[in-house]
Simulated assay, not measured.
Amino acid sequence: MLLSEKLFTTREKALEMPNVVYHYCSMTSFLAILETSSLRLSNITKSNDPTEITNVIPVLKDVTKNVLTDYNNLISTPYQFRDDTISKLVDRFFEDLSKNFYAICFSEKRDLLSQWDRYDDNGKGVALGFNTRHFVKLQAETRSQYIFGKIIYDQNMLANSIEFFLRNEIDGKWKSCDDIHNVNLIENVINNLVCTILQFSVLFKDGFFSEEAEWRLVYNPLGRIRRLGYASAYHDRLMETNQYRLEQSGFIRNTYQFLVKGSSISSYVDLSFEPIRDALIQEIIIGPKSTLQPNDKDLQMFLALHGYRLSKLAIEGKLILSKSDRPFR
């Protein structure tokens, strides 16, 4: 079994796909999302925690080093790996060029106090409920450049998956190889491992945040192309993807845009959902500290002018509008 299959199989067995996931945001972001009918996928390397992608590296290095120590004993001394070999190989394959992911975050928890506190302008914004069926369709497209998945907070599961992959790969290649001193064999195994882990690194997060029950929609411009040997190849690939694209699922990917973030420039991608607007957004929850109420006439006029119809029941094509009842200081 491939490592990617094992990771997804393990997750899907443990987790069920929710029908709705919630994006907690400020009132300004809420207006922008509905006015433009688009979701902003931000460059995750420029996020508040840019180590999110790389926090799998220590686990990757430790497990790989432990497993390869066993195989090192089968190799005669002149060919054995030095202690720093694994770290150097991982660092070389885990290239900065390949870490350009664009993501938007959701939670499967409806009306969650910690989400209001961290991501919602201190409880004064809104939570938008999105139908997950359309994100699944986006991921399922042929040669899809998207991943929609639940964040994995279990580092032990990651470590076990890496060890499983390594031992199966090395055993299989070693048995079919006449020269057990072939260093390239090990390098190829580690390269394949790192490329696979890199592809799914955006779905791992420190267990401290497990309460968030986070899901992510991720756009990866490189698709399943992993290692690019030089910077020009990476930028050529970005130029190929810098175009409007109507996805089969109904989303429209816009060209790259840029904004100033602190003293830096950050790229982002807007994903328009105009063709599936009525079916995608199912619920709006007003934050517990917001002075806005569901019966506010300006709010209802804003929703009506942008084509949203309200309902008290969960009916596709109509919105449920409510106010959070969470106590918030």
Score class of each variant (00 low, 15 high):
Ser263Thr: 10
Asp206Gln: 07
Gly123Tyr: 02
Thr196Asp: 12
Arg226Ser: 09
Asn66Gln: 09
Pro221Thr: 02
Ser272Ile: 12
Gly223Asp: 04
Gly262Arg: 06
Thr85Phe: 07
Val202Gly: 10
Ser76Gly: 10
Thr64Arg: 01
Ser76Asp: 11
Ser38Met: 12
Glu12Ala: 04
Tyr119Asn: 07
Leu292Asn: 01
His181Arg: 08
Ser144Tyr: 12
Val63Lys: 10
Tyr308Cys: 15
Thr291Tyr: 07
Asp179Met: 01
Leu68Gln: 04
Ser210Met: 07
Val63Gly: 04
Phe81Ile: 07
Ala213Ser: 13
Leu217Gly: 05
Val21Asn: 05
Ser324Gly: 05
Lys88Ala: 06
Thr255Val: 14
Tyr256His: 12
His23Ala: 06
Lys13Asp: 10
Tyr234Trp: 01
Val126Arg: 12
Gln115Thr: 02
Gln115Ile: 00
Ser114Ala: 09
Ser47Gly: 03
Arg110Gln: 09
Gln293Tyr: 05
Gly250Ile: 09
Ser107Glu: 03
Leu305Ala: 11
Glu211His: 04
Gly149Thr: 08
Ser176Val: 01
Thr196Tyr: 00
Arg253Gln: 13
Asn131Tyr: 03
Ser324Asp: 09
Ala279His: 05
Tyr256Glu: 14
Val90Asn: 01
Ser29Gly: 09
Ser264Pro: 12
Tyr24His: 03
Ser114Met: 07
Leu292Val: 06
Arg167Trp: 11
Glu247His: 12
Arg40Lys: 15
Lys289Arg: 06
Leu3Glu: 06
Ser42Trp: 13
Asn48Leu: 02
Leu2Pro: 12
Met17Arg: 07
Thr54Tyr: 01
Ala231Phe: 11
Trp174Asn: 00
Asn192Leu: 08
Leu246Gly: 09
Ser42His: 13
Leu128Val: 15
Gln300Val: 14
Arg253Tyr: 15
Glu95Pro: 00
Tyr24Met: 05
Arg82Trp: 03
Ile53His: 00
Arg237Cys: 12
Gly149Glu: 08
Leu280Cys: 01
Leu74Arg: 13
Val218Glu: 13
Tyr146Asn: 02
Asp270Val: 15
Ala233Asp: 08
Pro58Cys: 05
Arg110Val: 07
Ser263Leu: 03
Ile286Tyr: 05
Asn254Lys: 14
Asp298Ile: 14
Gln282Tyr: 03
Gly149Tyr: 10
Thr77His: 08
Phe30Cys: 06
Tyr268Asp: 04
Glu240Gln: 06
Leu113Gln: 11
Thr9Ser: 06
Ser176Asn: 11
Ala127Leu: 12
Thr196Phe: 03
Lys261Thr: 10
Glu169Cys: 04
Asp121Thr: 03
Lys65Tyr: 12
Lys323Gly: 02
Leu97Glu: 02
Pro221Ser: 04
Leu246Glu: 14
Arg11Ala: 04
Thr77Met: 05
Glu12Pro: 03
Tyr71Ser: 05
Phe130Thr: 04
